[in-house]
Amino acid sequence: MKTTEEIFEILKNNFAEDVLELVEDLPTEKFIKVNPLAIYKISDFLRTEDGLKFDTLMCLSGVDEADGEKVKDENDNEVINGGNLSVYYHLDSVELKQKVTIKVETPRDNPEVESVENVWKCADWHEREAYDMYGIKFLNHPNLIRILMPYDWDAGYPLRKDYQNPEFYKGMKVPY
């Protein structure tokens, strides 16, 4: 069983500049920050490398960091400019009984992360959900469409912290 620090060292040796930092000062959980446009090759490495063998993606979650500049728009609603959205990957190795958390951060204006659908099939719907809720674009995803919201929802991404309910949806009043 390897600790997050050991896994960080292994990743650092293999993907020098794409592995950004090890966040360990939080009291609850440690995680490794990596480059969002290198997540595919890192994931593939994590899944196949001897001694790592992270064969299961337990959870993939989009998060709005809301660390940008908060301004008021013309309707006096708060809008966030700049800052980051992020994605957390919680990996588990059934074989070696070890867990690790990977995090990527991507700019809010143009959120792009490589898809890991090809590595863990389980990521398919999770990535669609993150796209649906946060608008994070997963590059090379085979079917990146909304999943929980209606397919033609055009009022933005509901779990972003500055999301505003639209007044009407296809002529129906919201909230009804």
Binding site: L26, P27, T28, F31
Partner: peptide, 10 residues
């Protein structure tokens, strides 16, 4: 009021 941080529990 949990401290700042993340947790994944299953």
């Amino acid at each position: 009021k949990p401290p700042k941080g993340t947790i994944y529990t299953r």
